[in-house]
Design a protein around this nucleic acid. Sequence first.
DNA 1: ACGCCGTAAGTTGTCCGACAAGATACTTAC
DNA 2: GTAAGTATCTTGTCGGACAACTTACGGCGT
Lengths: 253, 253
Amino acid sequence: MPGQHVEERARPRSVQVRKELTHRIDSGTFAAGSRLPSEPALAMELGVSRATLREALRALESEGLVRRMWGAGTFVADGRRVTNSLDANFGVTDAIRAAGMVAGIEQARHSMEPATVSEAGRLELQPGSDVLVVERVRTADGKPVVLSRDILPGRLIAKRPEIADQMLMRSIYEVLERELGLVIHHGVASFRPVRADVTVARRLGVPRGELLLAIWQVDYSEDGAPVLSSYEYHLADAFEFTVLRRGPGRRLS
Amino acid sequence: MPGQHVEERARPRSVQVRKELTHRIDSGTFAAGSRLPSEPALAMELGVSRATLREALRALESEGLVRRMWGAGTFVADGRRVTNSLDANFGVTDAIRAAGMVAGIEQARHSMEPATVSEAGRLELQPGSDVLVVERVRTADGKPVVLSRDILPGRLIAKRPEIADQMLMRSIYEVLERELGLVIHHGVASFRPVRADVTVARRLGVPRGELLLAIWQVDYSEDGAPVLSSYEYHLADAFEFTVLRRGPGRRLS
DNA sequence: ACGCCGTAAGTTGTCCGACAAGATACTTAC
DNA sequence: GTAAGTATCTTGTCGGACAACTTACGGCGT
C-alpha cells in the first residue's frame, strides 16, 4: 500500500510546542543564557499541559538548545551555536548555504541501473534491482566544491519518472519530501580523507592528488527503511565541518 | 568555592531508568528490532511512574536507541549500531577501543605555558594565563595512529600538580572525572583533511605529506564553562569516523 | 555593623488516575 | 474467500498533587 500521500497529518502536540519554542529561541524572543518562564507558566501560555511541555523541553535539551537545572529553572543554552554542523545540516545544499554561499548544480545526470551487491546491501534491496543513480557537481558561488553520487531504490519513482529530472536541479531531500512525502528521519555518515583520482579530479576541475574529504552515508525514513545512499567528495578547503559531541553520558563498557 | 567533591549525589530517577534500559538493550535482554513492554507494564516492573519512564524513553529516542510509534509500541532500534561514532565516543581512547584495538600512549610530555591569544579565546581565559599542555602519541595495537595536543586551564590543577602526570598515561577525560569530579557535558569538534608536515610526520613515524585527518575541539563542563581544548592528527587509514545525523527536524532558515 | 544560618518561596522531578488518538488483530457480514 | 467493522492494545495528552532541590531573603548571634 504505497498510497499515503501528503495529508497534513496531525503531529503530536509536543512537536508543535517544540517547534514554537525553537522559533522563539532562534528569533531571540528567548535570549541566549536567559531563564525561560517556569513550566506551569509556559504550559499555560502555550495552551498545553505541563507533561506535554516537558516532553518538548526534553527534546530541546537533548538538542543542546536548553539546559534544565533541578530547582533552579530552565535556561537557554549560551550562544555558541554551531553553524555548519555535520549532524544538524542535512545535505550539501544546506551546508553551502550555511556557509553563506550560493549553492548551484552542474554536470547533473541520472540513470537507472541494476544495483551492485554492496549498494543493494546498503539499501536492503535484491542485488540487481533497479536503482536510480544521480550524479551532480555542486558549486558554491559558482565554483565546484563537491562531487556527489546519490543512489535510491528505483521503485520509489517507478510511477513518477519525471521526479528524477527534478533531482538534477534541486536538493534530493527537498524533492523526496515535497513530491513523495518522504521525510528523512536520520542518517549515518562516515568520512575519511582521500586524494582525488583522475576521474574525480577532472569533474571537480582540480589537480590529481588534491586533498578531498570523502563522505558516504545512508539515510533512513521514519519507519527505519533505507531510502538514500550517497557518496560525496568534498574539496578540503571548501568548508569546515563541525560535530556537536554529546556526553559522555552513556559510557560503553 | 571549588569544594564540591564527588559525593554520590542522588541522580534523578529517570536517569537511573535510562541507564537500566540502555544496559538491557546493550546486553541483548531487549533484542534489536523487538518491541518493548508497554509503558504501563515497564513502569510497574521498574518501579517508577509512567511519566518518569516516558522521560527516560524520550531520552533514549533522541539517542536513536529506540523508536516510538503512536499506537503501536516502542521498538528497539534496528541493530546497525554505530560503532566508532564521532558524536558518541569521546576521546581517542574510546575510539581505539571501539575499533577493537588496544589503546596505548607514547612520547607523552606535559608543560605549563602561557596561553596564546587564540587558545585563551577558546578557553575564555586572559591571554598569557598559565595553561597545561599535554602532548601524546596514541597507539592502536602498538602502532602510532594519533598525535594529540591537549590544552586546559592551569588553575584546574593548580592545587594538585601531580594530576598532570596521570594525564600522561590515561585518558584525560577519565582523570578529569575521577580526580577532579569534572564531567564533560558536550564538545564541539571540527575536522578537515591535511597533509603531514615534517614535525607531525616524524612523531607519527610516517612519510611527510601523508594523509591525515585533523580534528580540533573544545569541551565544556555541565555549567557551560570551557574545560579542554585539543588538537588531534589522525592517520587517515587508522580508523573510520561515523556521525549519526538527526533530522532534518528543525530546518535553519 | 558584619557574618552565619535557618527559613520561605519558587522551580523542576515524580507520582497517580483518567481519557483521547492511533494501530493492530480479530470477528463478523457479505 | 474477501472485506469491512469492531475490540483491544498502545502511545499521547491532560489535570492535580506532593517531594526534592535551588535560591534568596530575613533573623540571629557575635
